[in-house]
Simulated assay, not measured.
Amino acid sequence: MGDTRIEWTDKTFNAWWGCTPVSPGCDHCYADTLARRWGHQVFQHRGPRRMLSDDYWRQPLTWNREAQRTEVPIRVFTMSMGDLFEDHPHVTEARERLWPLIDQTPWLRWQLLTKRPRNVTSMVPWGNAWPEHVWLGTSAENQHWANIRIPALLQIPAAVRFLSCEPLLGPIALQQAVIPMGSQRGHGLTASYVHTGDCCTSRLHGIDWVIAGGESGPNARPMHPRWATDLRDQCRNADVAFFFKQWGAYAPETHHHDRGRTTVIDLKGHTWDDADPATPPDAIRMRRVGKGKAGRCLSGRLHEATPPLSPTRTPNAPDS
């Protein structure tokens, strides 16, 4: 690990490998596939976790010196091979080892991504004074999990809060998850709105970045294009950075793909037989062309916005 082909970061760092699957986004976990390829069965409930060497743990110190020399912060995705905030008896020591390493590396932008945001507060040492170089994100693959995880994320005063909507398995209306926070004081999360005609659009206070993408791999599920474009439009209306990572294994047939297995998917995520007369009008034909051919263009262009490497706002401490 270290150098990575993940488009929205510069490096990856893993305090360990492995975690327990918790939601549909985990069903075809690339990390589990990679670990099994190396002979590690570490993605099982209460199963073993793979720990890394001392040499591996020294890498972020080298990256920090490099970033300080060039005066360009380096983004570090933590963890690509597990979940830092899993409540597992074998990982407590490794997690505690990470906090002083983060404190020693202020030129790194630590991107902590979790599917367990409710565990974060009890596991980090910073209370309401998070370091400015630590970003916190949560995964949300559909509306159900967005409604559960986003409010938990927004309770935490990280300098940058972000969402990974990948693999995107259904439509997500971000304001449905953000609006409940508007009734709570503190956190800088009072819900405010921009009225456009009859539309009332949340400004998504507290969310700084949204990453979206489809699923890749041999068992990939297709992503309806509207799910991605709707997220893009929500971010545009709310002045939130939007990053489209990939289509995944499937791309719309309208993108001039005439080869590859066809799947018809509607806005709710149901798949249909190509000749079924009951197919709803919002269904679209997707072609399995592979990640490389499917590409990363959404509506004909790349979307690669990211938060500033130096935060422009100070985390707000919640009211006591």
Score class of each variant (00 low, 15 high):
Gly2Lys: 12
Asp3Cys: 02
Glu7Cys: 03
Trp8His: 15
Thr9His: 04
Asp10Tyr: 02
Lys11Pro: 00
Thr12Gln: 05
Thr20Phe: 06
Pro21Thr: 08
Val22Lys: 15
Pro24Leu: 12
Asp27Cys: 04
His28Leu: 00
Ala31Lys: 11
Thr33Leu: 02
Gln44Asn: 12
Gly47Ile: 10
Gly47Trp: 02
Gly47Lys: 07
Asp54Trp: 00
Arg65Ala: 14
Val76Trp: 01
Met81Cys: 07
Phe85Thr: 06
His88Val: 00
Thr92Gly: 08
Gln104Gly: 01
Thr105Cys: 15
Leu108Gln: 05
Arg109Gln: 09
Trp110Gly: 04
Trp110Tyr: 04
Gln111Leu: 01
Gln111His: 04
Gln111Val: 08
Leu112Trp: 03
Val120Gly: 12
Ser122Cys: 01
Gly127Ser: 07
Glu132Gly: 09
Glu132Thr: 14
Glu141Asp: 09
Glu141Met: 10
Leu153Pro: 10
Pro157Phe: 08
Leu163Ile: 14
Glu166Cys: 11
Glu166Ile: 00
Leu168Thr: 08
Leu169Arg: 08
Pro171Val: 03
Ala173Leu: 15
Pro180Ala: 05
Gln184Gly: 04
Arg185Ile: 13
Tyr193Thr: 01
His195Arg: 15
Cys200Lys: 14
Ser202Cys: 10
His205Arg: 15
His205Ile: 07
Glu215Gly: 10
Met223Ser: 12
His224Phe: 01
His224Lys: 02
Trp227Asn: 09
Ala228Leu: 00
Thr229Trp: 00
Asp230Pro: 02
Gln234Ser: 01
Cys235Gln: 05
Cys235Tyr: 07
Asn237Lys: 13
Asp239Cys: 11
Tyr250Cys: 09
His255Phe: 09
Arg259Lys: 14
Gly260Thr: 13
Gly260Asn: 13
Gly260Lys: 10
Thr263Glu: 09
Val264His: 07
Val264Trp: 13
Val264Glu: 03
Lys268Gln: 13
Gly269Trp: 03
Trp272Tyr: 11
Asp273His: 14
Asp273Gln: 12
Asp276Lys: 03
Pro277Phe: 01
Ala278Thr: 12
Thr279Leu: 01
Pro280Arg: 12
Ile284Glu: 03
Arg288His: 14
Lys291Leu: 06
Gly295Asn: 09
Gly295Arg: 12
Leu298His: 01
Ser299Glu: 15
Arg301Gln: 15
Glu304Asp: 15
Ala305Leu: 02
Pro308Trp: 07
Leu309His: 06
Thr312Phe: 06
Arg313Lys: 15
Pro318Gly: 03
Asp319Val: 14
Ser320Glu: 13
